[in-house]
Design a protein around this nucleic acid. Structure first.
Length: 193
DNA sequence: ACCCAGGAATTGT
DNA sequence: ACAATTCATGGG
């Protein structure tokens, strides 16, 4: 998608252990409180806040946006980006493994969120994020998670194994395969967008 | 009152 | 190293 990397980081940090309507609400509130007002075709919008703008907010203020425990992680990510400690443009040019290792250093960014950032904003089209829906797809249609009960969460090691296997199986564009799987699962079982 | 949601950090073994 | 617990928040 080549989403803006900073926006992508913030968005997926908000996405941990919640659902899509909730994520949209958080991002909307952040934009209204910390973004810039703009008008296009007579309609008022708010831009997504920069890392610098978010870095100016306190953790308590962010928590008041409905972020819950994620407020601390947004603070950490904003600080890392605003300070230059995390150079996202540089990671665009790095290899998958190196870029992922840098992302995971940030508080609040783990295996899955790192893969989402890599796939959606850092041109790592071979990244294969595994959320609960993808885990179900893999359990139902592939042998990689045979025996696992649906909706059971993956351990760190399982994530590495299964994501690695999928990356090898689907190849250079594994991320596209992941997106088709996700969309398919949501079409069949979802309905709560 | 429970279970779930585009998980990750912390604690326990 | 690996597995269990905790963490906010709202909807079903």
């Amino acid at each position: 998608m080549r989403q803006d990397p900073s926006q992508c980081v913030m968005s997926f940090v908000c996405a941990s252990n919640t659902n899509i309507p909730m994520i949209r609400r958080m991002l909307g509130t952040l934009s209204r409180k910390y973004g810039s007002r703009i008008t296009a075709d007579g309609i008022e919008f708010h831009t997504f806040p920069s890392a610098k703008a978010l870095d100016r907010a306190t953790e308590a203020e962010l928590r008041a946006c409905g972020l819950g425990y994620r407020a601390k992680a947004i603070k950490a990510a904003a600080r890392a980006i605003a300070s230059g400690a995390l150079d996202l443009e540089h990671l665009k040019k790095a290899e998958y493994g190196e870029a992922k290792a840098e992302l995971i250093k940030i508080y609040g960014i783990g295996n899955k969120i790192a893969d989402c950032i890599l796939l959606f904003s850092l041109d790592k089209l071979d990244a294969f994020p595994i959320d609960v829906w993808i885990a179900r797809a893999l359990a139902g249609n592939y042998g990689w998670l045979a025996g696992k009960r649906m909706s059971e969460k993956l351990t760190e090691k399982q994530y590495e194994d299964v994501s690695g296997a999928a990356r090898q199986y689907f190849g250079r564009y594994a991320g596209y395969a992941q997106q088709f799987l996700y969309y398919h699962m949501r079409q069949d079982a979802g309905k709560k967008w």
